[in-house]
Amino acid sequence: MADEETDEPTVPIVCEACGTDTRVPLSELRETLETHNEHRHDGEEIAQIDPVIADELANAVAADLGLYGAEDDG
């Protein structure tokens, strides 16, 4: 049920255990991961956001929060 009129970003998810490599809308990310892991892996967190993207996202959030460059007083 993809709505092509929305500009919602998608996030890549991977599950090496069962070969899943797909993209899902950001608004559906949590539910998709939980559902996949619950149904295919007895709730164990096997499927995840692509690790490269997760690292980039964590770095961007840390930068936005001012956690980088704290010693740079301008």
Rank of each mutant, 00 (worst) to 15 (best):
M1E: 14
M1G: 15
M1W: 03
D3N: 13
E4Y: 10
E4R: 14
T6V: 13
E8M: 06
P9F: 07
T10W: 06
T10L: 02
V11C: 09
V11L: 03
V11G: 09
V11P: 09
P12F: 05
P12A: 15
I13P: 05
V14N: 08
V14E: 11
V14K: 05
C15A: 07
C15D: 15
E16K: 00
E16L: 05
A17F: 05
C18I: 14
C18H: 15
G19W: 03
T20I: 14
D21N: 13
D21R: 08
D21E: 12
D21F: 07
D21L: 06
T22C: 00
R23Q: 11
R23H: 13
R23N: 04
V24R: 08
P25K: 13
L26G: 06
L26D: 08
L29R: 09
L29G: 11
R30A: 14
R30T: 13
R30W: 02
T32R: 05
T32C: 06
E34N: 11
T35S: 11
N37W: 00
N37G: 13
E38Q: 11
E38P: 02
E38R: 10
H39F: 01
H41C: 06
D42T: 05
E44N: 00
E44W: 00
E45I: 05
I46C: 04
I46H: 02
A47H: 06
Q48V: 10
I49S: 12
D50Q: 08
D50F: 03
P51Y: 12
I53F: 15
A54P: 02
E56R: 07
L57V: 14
A58H: 10
A58W: 01
A58I: 08
N59I: 04
N59A: 14
V61R: 09
A62M: 08
A63K: 09
A63N: 10
A63D: 11
D64T: 12
G66C: 02
G66P: 05
L67C: 13
L67W: 11
Y68E: 15
G69H: 06
G69N: 13
E71N: 15
D72A: 13
D72H: 11
D73E: 14
D73I: 05
